[in-house]
């Protein structure tokens, strides 16, 4: 056929492209670590010369030492583990509830007018205001913490699912209708995949809030967890413990977000965006 000549060869040098991607990634990582390294060196130097009083802001080396000690005696893993466990269970429950409710509200206009006003009203309650009630209902054990985290995760995920589903292009849905798709098939083959980008954004901001609430929950009454280490450090006048915990939160938060981000770029590699064009 005469058409074949008009389209260019689809073969690309996949391997070279991948190598190129890696070297730019490494360069970006190197660039991003310049400023933190300079700051750390300055901090260490100023602590060493006594500009920063050690009982308020200990040197990075001392903080690292305290982290190392905790790792060696094993307490680090226990506290990190229980915090991650709470976050994970809360995140799972919050996300599951948000998916079910969000999908219903997003797809069925009736469900939206029934449930959305109520959910929006609940959303405007600062989630920490639930704490006393949850403790009263469920005590200071695990359930109240997990539920608090789940409540925090629920709203961003819910909002993003609803707006994702409602934002699906009517033109794409019509394509399904031309093929006589049932409602279920429309949801499965067009609406859910099209709402996926928005859902993943919701997951990431949900995770961010989840970390916030795990700290809140552990600050309030816990005998384990990284949040508990914060309180413990405050009560025992050990700033290195507090800063170690903060560093732990930073590292863990970054790692979990990177996991979700990796998942996102895996799932959304079909998207045509500025980020992916480069």
């Amino acid at each position: 056929m005469s058409m074949k000549a008009t389209v260019a060869s689809p073969k690309i040098e996949e391997k070279r492209k991948k190598n190129l991607q890696w070297s730019t990634k490494a360069r970006n990582a190197a660039l991003g670590s310049i400023v933190p390294i300079i700051l750390m060196i300055a901090w260490e130097y100023l602590s060493g010369t006594g500009v920063f009083p050690p009982h308020l802001l200990p040197a990075p080396s001392i903080i690292f030492q305290s982290l190392l000690n905790m790792a060696v005696d094993g307490s680090l893993w226990g506290h990190t583990g229980i915090t991650l466990y709470r976050l994970f269970i809360g995140f799972l429950i919050g996300t599951a509830a948000a998916v079910v409710v969000g999908a219903g509200v997003g797809y069925f206009a009736k469900a939206e007018s029934l449930f959305d006003p109520l959910i929006q009203a609940f959303r405007s309650i600062p989630s920490l205001a639930w704490v006393p009630l949850f403790i009263l209902w469920m005590g200071i054990g695990e359930p109240s913490k997990v539920v608090l985290i789940a409540v925090g995760v629920f709203f961003p995920v819910y909002l993003n699912i609803v707006s994702g589903i409602q934002g699906v292009d009517r033109k794409l849905i019509e394509v399904g209708k031309i093929y006589n798709f049932s409602s279920l098939k429309l949801i499965k083959r067009i609406i859910l995949p099209a709402a996926l980008p928005s859902f993943l954004v919701g997951l990431r901001s949900g995770l961010g809030l989840g970390w916030m609430f795990v700290v809140a929950a552990e600050l309030m009454g816990a005998s384990t967890g990284i949040g508990y280490l914060l309180v413990y450090g405050q009560n025992t006048y050990s700033p290195e413990l507090i800063i170690s915990s903060i560093v732990l939160f930073a590292i863990l938060g970054k790692i979990t977000d990177s996991i979700l981000k990796g998942l996102e770029s895996k799932a959304l590699h079909w998207q045509d965006t500025i980020e992916r064009k480069a």
Binding site: K171, E174, V175, K177, I178, Y179, N180, P193, A194, W270
Partner: peptide, 20 residues
Amino acid sequence: KAVHEKVGMIFQEPRLMPWL
């Protein structure tokens, strides 16, 4: 009065599913 299997439609825009 409904979509018929003998009918195919091509729109002004391609309307491809970007994830497929």
